[in-house]
Design a protein around this nucleic acid. Sequence first.
DNA 1: AGGCTAAGGACAGCCACTGACAATTGACAA
DNA 2: TTGTCAATTGTCAGTGGCTGTCCTTAGCCT
Lengths: 210, 210
Amino acid sequence: MQTLRERKKRRTRDALLRAAVELFTSRGYEATTVDAIAEAVDVSQRTFFRYFAGKEEAALGLVELTVERFVQAVRERPAHEPPLEALRQAVLDGWSSINEVVESVVPVELYLRMYRVIESTPVLLAAYLRRSTEVEETLAAVIAEREGLDVDADPRPRLAVAVFSGVMRVTERQWVAQEEGEFSLAGIRALTSRYLDQVGPALLGDWREA
Amino acid sequence: MQTLRERKKRRTRDALLRAAVELFTSRGYEATTVDAIAEAVDVSQRTFFRYFAGKEEAALGLVELTVERFVQAVRERPAHEPPLEALRQAVLDGWSSINEVVESVVPVELYLRMYRVIESTPVLLAAYLRRSTEVEETLAAVIAEREGLDVDADPRPRLAVAVFSGVMRVTERQWVAQEEGEFSLAGIRALTSRYLDQVGPALLGDWREA
DNA sequence: AGGCTAAGGACAGCCACTGACAATTGACAA
DNA sequence: TTGTCAATTGTCAGTGGCTGTCCTTAGCCT
């Protein structure tokens, strides 16, 4: 077991993250001041900034949890799987196990609602997309290693990951735009599979005969 | 000919954009205050914000010029070209004709340097990526219309554009990372073609026999 | 128990951005 | 030409995100 100090720090951070997510999802991101978040946890504004580099980081904190998990899942995929297959399975598994990752901080429902806040808040969406490109870079390295290639010599790892990520973006975008019914974990998994299956057809020359 | 007022406005905007780009590329984005830009043009800070929604918008002003041109180029591609071919040609043509679009505001050299500033400044990169997704949405609509499809019924237009954009991102990223020699208009055109040609191979299952 | 160090609070200040109001200046008709 | 109207700009005050500094508090460890 950790020391008291460490436990306290973890609790403060979780409390800040939870308060931030609750305020963002209820009042909106822009309408929530950092002061309000700090006040909700009863710490000074300065303390908030000691735990999060900025308001954005608190808003993307939940996503970050799942991102790390996803990258790890890709690493652990069986070596015989082709790159795109490994990515596909890792994503699908990731969506299935979100519960375990997120639940300790906030209920999954809030996680989903936070996704919509991100997508509908320009500055958050921007930050999210930038973070995604960082993840792409990491994934490209992982894929390259799996295939025994040099990322900087062979463009295929980066290209494959970029294509995959592009499809994931389209998927998420369509997902959050859906009605309450389809906006669920089952919904995103179904969409993911459907869209990945459509990549091949989408790249063929003539769409009219597909 | 336009009225004196309109000409004055245009001149003020161009001057602000020019001053912004010059300061961003020489001192860096974060190190440049809006006050400094306004002062360089001898207008009040308030006036700057009347022309640009924020510092970001001024930084992306040059890119915006070329984006509009690119979308237009896609629209004007011959109808018989398959989607990806139309996009490819439009991009390549776009890089060729940048001179004409940009030169009226700043020398092309500054345009290229600004690209590097964007790529190396987190908040700018984020804003750029978000803008790119907006462009993707527009392109998807254009492509869908070319093919006589409904964007919301058929996922292929969005997927094709997303894949294409993903490849463009990787291309740009590699491009700005290059040495001064390859960091040129000829360089980006060559990279673009090369990477687009590698998409097919990158999506195949087994890379070892390609 | 007491010294050491990590964590938090208080305070001051910078900068991006906005609303409101007043002053200026071009447009346009009498 | 001149007077009126409207668009453009400047000034000022204020908000909110974020940072540096300094001091206090509180867990840690001998």
